[in-house]
Design a protein around this nucleic acid. Structure first.
Lengths: 220, 220
DNA sequence: GACTCCAAAAATATTGAATATTTTGTGGCA
DNA sequence: TGCCACAAAATATTCAATATTTTTGGAGTC
């Protein structure tokens, strides 16, 4: 169980296109509500029409793309309302998962959380000075940190749900990064407290910190 | 907002195949772990290889089908472990949604819940005597009842999550029906209490009943 | 008898071109 | 302006063919 088989999406053409699309949507290169025409995407990512179409189908199930019958696909819209919905849900669901993780996680899990936090702290230091260049690493590190926090919850379906919600929230966070409205100092403090609470198994503190950290996406 | 546009899946070929597959998986005609070969499915449901494939992709995102890279698709397995995971998650998530519904739902929502319960009670009376013939109606009524309960929660994403989890749980409930191990009398009482609690806005009672009702799937 | 290695067979993944259907855009006409 | 018909664009679907990958069934070896 140490090396859980996480299927690498990069093996198949459809998987490659899906990953590329997910990234480009998250980083705003494909802005919200943009029409996604199969032909254009073929030019951009390669692959056949069918492969592109299947990737879009997949992403629409993840909520990153909206599919309207007979009228093709478009990038999911990203209104303030969407953001609030996502943040509210993430707060609830991720806290639930963290609570279960704190119940079931063993000592090696604590280690993985601390390691992930270490990487995240490092990446966050760097992204402060060079937002454009380091965004990718920071985003990846943050993602892994959140995955680690909940990966011991024991529910594969809960992990999958968190993953999807997280992917929906990335866009907003990365947009905030571009606009330079992120309070890195405060973020750092919260993440540190959160990580410290894990080995102490301080459920109350951990949940409170995680909720705050997630609600950082609401700007301010 | 009265008539929320729920896209009818039956418009497109892919949608038709998806619906048919979902139904056949739920009702056990395609048993857990069964290999799903494109060719066979084409013979059974019609449509081209691509349409079938896309339907399978969609269902794998819903958790009803498992896709392994380069090795095709199979019906998702349905172990006791799976059942427990699904029930546990549904209890948490559906209760959360119901709580929010009780906060935001207006008088017309209460009406829709009561109406759905009325239909469900009727279908449940009938399915008791003719499990095989009335399973479809009963299943549909139960589904609508649960949708109604949470539809006022105000979070489209939460509704989508519940839907997917519910679809994953249907298989187990319908299997229990076939085996005749369902305690309809107890179920009826709980559903009645649950419905009664809605207009009273008795959150505690409602959540407690809903949790019990969901945990009925654990057999016993 | 159990095992490894290899080629044939089966299944899956991917693509291209062609057709059908639907939506969208445009101009005439009342 | 509002409406209808028709053309153009986009999408949905299918068929047929090729490329990859996995599985299968021995042949030979220890």
């Amino acid at each position: 169980m140490l090396f859980g088989k996480q299927k690498p999406e990069n093996e198949t053409v459809v998987g490659l296109i899906t990953s590329a699309l997910r990234r480009d949507i998250a980083f705003g290169e494909l802005p919200p509500d943009k029409k996604l025409k199969i032909e254009e995407l073929r030019m951009r990512y390669g692959g056949s029409g069918h492969s592109v179409r299947e990737a879009l189908t997949l992403l629409s199930a993840e909520g990153l793309v909206e599919a309207s019958s007979q009228r093709g696909f478009r990038v999911a819209s990203a209104t303030q309302e969407d953001l609030e919905d996502i943040v509210r849900l993430r707060a609830q669901i991720e806290c639930m998962a963290l609570e279960w993780s704190l119940e079931h996680g063993d000592i090696t899990w604590e280690g993985r959380v601390i390691a992930a936090h270490h990487s995240l702290a490092h990446a966050q230091e760097q992204v402060k000075s060079a937002p454009q260049d380091r965004a990718l690493e920071w985003d990846a590190a943050a993602r892994i940190f959140h995955v680690r926090l909940i990966e011991a919850c024991g529910s594969p379906r809960l992990i999958a749900i968190q993953q999807k919600l997280y992917d929906q929230s990335r866009r907003f966070r990365l947009a905030a990064l571009r606009e330079g409205v992120l309070d890195f100092a405060a973020l750092k403090v919260i993440q540190q407290s959160l990580t410290d609470a894990v080995p102490k198994r301080d459920v109350q503190l951990a949940l409170q910190c995680l909720r705050k950290e997630i609600e950082f996406d609401l700007n301010g």
